[in-house]
């Protein structure tokens, strides 16, 4: 639970001391801007822009000579292999601030936004240094990840003539990791490699129906006594109260009775905009399913559709509909 009351007040007072201060370190680029590091960057990014790697093309361009990719700005002052140790300079006020958040339970950290502006493109031989200021700390916010605070920092980059060449800001969220995800007892504590759709829960009253889907059949439950069809399946007939039932297979032909186009929220595993329809099957029962391969603007009540049973992701088969030919 997030801190509250006087503890929160005191904590937020402590935070105030960090707003507006320099983090205490000046980052000096270890190498001047150079063609080898630029080439390495461009190879990694697949960036074939001649201004970065082809002296002839660069000379003929507005740049006039070889320049470094502007988004590489921060790369000139990062620490390289030394960063892998995880140790940080004890004078670093930004790290100190993060530790303060950690101590109050806001252990999660994620960068949410970054903005950069470039005064000029860097040329080979430029020597870059940078200073970082903690610009602001937000009030406590409720976010999708949990309760937390946004920290905004601004790093200003200067060249060998002490002229500003650009700046960047980072917005970082320090948040309290939600209890549910922290104490997840799932067998897999890590996210699967590809998101899959939500699977049905299976029980006595519906597992048989999903077994039919596995066998590529769209089943409709039928009362053994009065032969009324019913969907979704239930253990008793609402017409005659008989408990015995069997099922028939639908032809999958039907018409759209109503439909929606889902745009928000986008749940991983599904493709949006997502068309979901209540389809009136020719047998008379209705069924809820996706309508595929159609411009959402073309879907209409009354449209004829045909079901087929298909894999909708790596794992699940589902009856889906397409406009009937």
């Amino acid at each position: 639970m997030a801190i509250s009351g006087t503890e929160r007040e005191e904590f937020e007072k402590q935070l105030e001391a960090y707003v507006g201060i320099d983090i205490g370190l000046e980052d000096q680029g270890r190498d001047p801007v150079n063609a080898a590091m630029v080439r390495h960057w461009c190879e990694a990014m697949g960036d074939g822009c001649g201004a970065y790697t082809d002296p002839v093309q660069a000379a003929a361009s507005v740049h006039g000579e070889l320049v470094a990719p502007p988004t590489m700005l921060q790369a000139w002052i990062l620490g390289g292999v030394s960063m892998a140790s995880g140790e940080s300079d004890p004078r670093d006020k930004q790290k100190e601030l993060h530790r303060l958040f950690d101590s109050k339970g806001f252990t999660g950290v994620v960068a949410t936004n970054t903005e950069q502006e470039y005064t000029r493109y860097l040329k080979m031989g430029d020597e870059i240094c940078a200073k970082t200021v903690i610009e602001s700390i937000s009030e406590q916010k409720a976010t999708g990840l949990g309760i937390g605070y946004f920290i905004n920092t601004r790093t200003t980059f200067r060249d060998q003539n002490d002229e500003e060449v650009g700046w960047l800001t980072f917005r970082v969220l320090k948040f309290e990791i939600a209890e549910a995800s922290a104490s997840s007892s799932d067998e897999s504590s890590v996210t699967p490699s590809r998101p899959q759709r939500l699977k049905p829960a299976l029980g006595h009253d519906n597992a048989w129906w999903w077994d039919c889907v596995e066998k590529d059949e769209l089943a409709i439950q039928r009362c053994s006594s009065c032969h009324a069809l019913r969907h979704p399946p239930r253990p008793m007939c609402g017409e005659c109260q008989a408990s015995d039932w069997d099922f028939v297979f639908s032809t999958g032909q039907g018409t759209i009775y109503s439909f929606v186009v889902i745009r928000h929220p986008e749940v991983p595993g599904y493709t949006y905009p997502l068309v979901v329809a209540v389809v009136e099957l020719e047998e008379g029962t209705r069924f809820v399913g996706n309508v595929l391969d159609i411009d959402p603007a073309e879907v209409e009540v009354g449209m004829s559709v045909q079901a087929s049973i298909e894999l909708v992701d790596d794992e699940m088969k589902l009856p889906v509909f397409r406009r009937a030919q």
């Binding site: 660069a58 507005v62 988004t71 960068a111 936004n113 502006e117």
Partner: peptide, 29 residues
Amino acid sequence: ILTTNGLVSRFVTDWAGIDARITGVSIKL
């Protein structure tokens, strides 16, 4: 994040060409 920025920049200059000058990038992650 730098790689993301690098790819975004490449995406734009692939389209705009060598004489484009990128003056700023603002992204939400």
